[in-house]
Design a protein around this nucleic acid. Sequence first.
DNA 1: TGCAATACTGACTCTTTTGTCACTATGAAC
DNA 2: GTTCATAGTGACAAAAGAGTCAGTATTGCA
Lengths: 120, 120
Amino acid sequence: MVIQYKDKQYFTSKDLALSVIGGRWKIAIIWCLLHETPLRLSEIQKKLPDANQRMLIRQLRELEEDKIITRYVYPVVPPKVEYKLSEVGLLLEPVVTSICNFGDQFMQTIEQEADSTLVD
Amino acid sequence: MVIQYKDKQYFTSKDLALSVIGGRWKIAIIWCLLHETPLRLSEIQKKLPDANQRMLIRQLRELEEDKIITRYVYPVVPPKVEYKLSEVGLLLEPVVTSICNFGDQFMQTIEQEADSTLVD
DNA sequence: TGCAATACTGACTCTTTTGTCACTATGAAC
DNA sequence: GTTCATAGTGACAAAAGAGTCAGTATTGCA
């Protein structure tokens, strides 16, 4: 089975999934939008202060292209644009949740190790 | 909260998780080891023919460093080395599963779209 | 002697991703 | 007419990641 998507070939649906969520800030953006929605660019920036604006916009554009998020532009000045997860985007909730859970568990094992190193 | 791990700082456990699973072949390797274990390098190579050996070894080394997999070397010639998921590595099962599920669902939406494009 | 099998390393290049900087547009308020 | 706020783009530099190629070690066997 070969999946053709956006000029690339993917051999498993898993690889396809990774191409969608694989970007420095994408999981973080989706996480934000799962917790509060809709969000404006300026609000996402506040929640992810380490990502610069240019980078965030790029990731948002890619997510939009993949139809993970929707973008609604209000015809006002100064501009107002709202981002929210699409129906397909909401399907990523289990992915984000399981990553968070693993992160917590992994962190605990690191801390335990640090503790036992101190004890030695 | 700041997590120090391997000379880097992570601001959330989610970022830490991503640093562990974020490598071109890591999810694929973990997927293989969830389905069949233990596996030798040569067996993993057969299952992931698009990854070259050097690359696989690098990813395996990193996973080993993060204690996601264990590596057992048999003292024989020619060499025999077995890889399997550690206890911590097994915690990644929900992550891999949810990514696969999302991949399948995402693929369906793409296919539906392709169908409707044909209909138009 | 020379080759086979397996796992692995070093040094390098190439590509992709990420980050930075300066810049644009709009209309209202002062 | 200058300034503000918001969202955005273009062009480039830097860094990280991925991929390639040639080479190592071991021991048994023909």
